[in-house]
Amino acid sequence: MISPSIFVFAPLASAALFTALMVVRSRNVIHAGYWLLPCLLAVAGLFGSLEAHFFVVVQILIYAGAILILILFALMLTRDVMDPKQRQTTKFAPLAVPLCIFVGLGGALMMARAPWPAIQAAAPGPAEQTKALGLGLIGDYALPFEVASLILLAALIGAICLAKAEKEPAAPEPVIDLRGEIELEESVSAGAADGH
């Protein structure tokens, strides 16, 4: 018997797969970054179909909101990668085909063999779920919870060190680094820059 939830799962899963494929296929790295947005939202929808309500909000807020902005800003820092004519594969590309087949078939085999217990009881409501998560964070998982803040701290300090180290030697341009273009066409570029 086909469960009605397949009508929710199938469109969301195919949307997630399609957009994920577009992330990898886009020649323009910024387009790839933007394709991530519907992909992450589709995953949020999958969480919703599993009735993991808190994670829907977290997925949208943190992944579709913050992490995506971080990725787009990181792309803005790059220069050579931006070129759409850049080769997108390395000499190891042919290795990817057997590897993907192996991982895909292996995963499918494992999932087909696993006994999936059918859960009869209805999932608890959003408030109960969030409360249970909070109790877990305070109680059983207090140490991982505190370690998470240390990991965030490490990311923060690492970014400050990198940003500061890169800034010191060269005289920094305030907002956008136009140096390359200014040297080429000094007079025209000055007019364009003033126009902002």
Binding site: I62, T78, R79, A163
Partner: peptide, 23 residues
């Protein structure tokens, strides 16, 4: 004025720092 050069510029690393603080 007519646009000069590419729209893709290498942006100040400060943007990244702010985004990371935000995350």
């Amino acid at each position: 004025p007519l646009p000069v050069g590419e729209a893709w510029q290498q942006f100040n690393v400060h943007y990244y720092l702010f985004a990371l603080l935000f995350v």
